[in-house]
């Protein structure tokens, strides 16, 4: 399990900076985040609204447009070792690795597929450049489609002729056809119905296993994380608060936020009253000092209100950012 990391994120910071008619706002959406994604694993990122998870993957993917700004830190891919982050890489370097090394799967498949182009044409647009000769290209695409359990006939279809589940399969096939080393998946199944979702997730797992790629999988749905991911990072208000193998998170989470999050999930067959957290997620433009979770935390003590806890490795592969939990362990 000690494979070299394919993505190393170190002290990454990004903020939204807006300036409208004299009203200046600085919203630190990603605050000092460090983690590794290893080769051949699915790393999950979980977090609720305004946890900054979407901003984090945008920053990692180098999709940084105003008002979002990279403030500091690095996000280094193994296939671009000289580059601190994709945002600073040259456009040529990014174009060279896009799809061949690094691929994306987004929530809205319709945003990826050109509505007036047949699927086969879209495959050519994406991959012909990376795969070379047109002769075996067709065969390769069809073989790949078989892997995501699609008939070759979809190549002649237009996106609107396919169901939502089939479209999302097509986007996954597009993202994986060049056998990338790293896939960023942003809520890829959130828009799908549960039955289709289960299918698509199983397929993603298969294809990842077969190709040996790594996936950074972002979703707010803890059930999906439980089923799919190998390791899981929990985000709260722009910071990473806990990271451990997925089983460990669900069996023995340590951070009070994670524990509440998991305890609040309803289960069929268990009608006991669920407690929700009190209070509201913080507004990042005016985040609380110290640990950002302290206003809602049942364990909060004085130090939580002034000093932000650092991520501390309490057990092998289990990191937590909480004064109380680390204090008890010490």
């Amino acid at each position: 399990m000690s494979a070299a990391p394919i993505l190393q994120v170190r002290n990454l910071r990004a903020a939204f900076r807006t300036h409208h008619f004299g009203v200046r706002r600085d919203v630190p959406a990603v605050d000092d985040i460090s983690f590794d994604v290893r080769a051949n694993e699915i790393y999950g990122l979980a977090g609720e609204s305004s946890s900054g998870k979407t901003t984090l993957i945008k920053t990692i993917a180098g999709v940084i447009k105003p008002p979002l700004e990279l403030v500091g830190g690095s996000a280094r891919f193994a296939f671009l070792p000289d580059c601190e982050s994709l945002a600073q890489a040259s456009p040529a370097a990014v174009a060279a690795i896009r799809w061949s090394k690094l691929a994306y799967i987004m929530q809205g498949s319709m945003n990826v597929l050109n509505p007036v182009r047949r699927i086969g044409k879209t495959f050519e647009d994406f991959a012909l450049r990376h795969i070379g000769s047109a002769g075996d290209f067709q065969q390769r695409v069809e073989a790949h489609l078989q892997r995501v359990r699609l008939e070759p006939s979809v190549l002649r279809s237009y996106p609107h002729e396919l169901s939502g589940g089939m479209r999302q399969r097509v986007t996954i096939a597009l993202a994986t056809i060049c056998a990338p080393d790293f896939i960023i998946a942003d809520e890829p199944t959130t828009a799908l119905d549960v039955i289709v979702q289960k299918d698509v997730l199983a397929m993603m797992r298969d294809i990842q296993g077969a190709m040996g790629a790594s996936i950074l999988f972002v979703t707010h749905d803890m059930g999906v994380h439980a089923a799919l991911t190998d390791r899981l990072g929990i985000m709260y208000a722009g910071r990473l608060v806990e990271e451990a193998p997925t089983d460990v998170i669900f069996r023995g989470a340590l951070h009070p936020y994670t524990r509440h999050l998991i305890a609040s999930l309803p289960r069929i067959g268990d009608r006991s009253e669920r407690k929700s957290l009190t209070g509201v997620p913080p507004n990042l433009a005016n985040a609380p000092p110290g640990c950002r979770f302290h206003p809602r935390c049942p364990l909060a003590v004085d130090i939580c209100r002034v000093q932000a806890p650092a991520m501390t490795e309490l057990a092998t592969q289990h990191r937590v950012a909480c004064h109380v939990v680390t204090g008890e362990a010490a």
Partner: peptide, 17 residues
């Protein structure tokens, strides 16, 4: 630019969501 709803929201602080 001033009365555009997005710019208005950004000034009120709701644009960052």
């Amino acid at each position: 630019e001033y009365i555009d709803p997005r710019s208005r929201l950004a000034r009120m602080g709701g644009g960052a969501r």
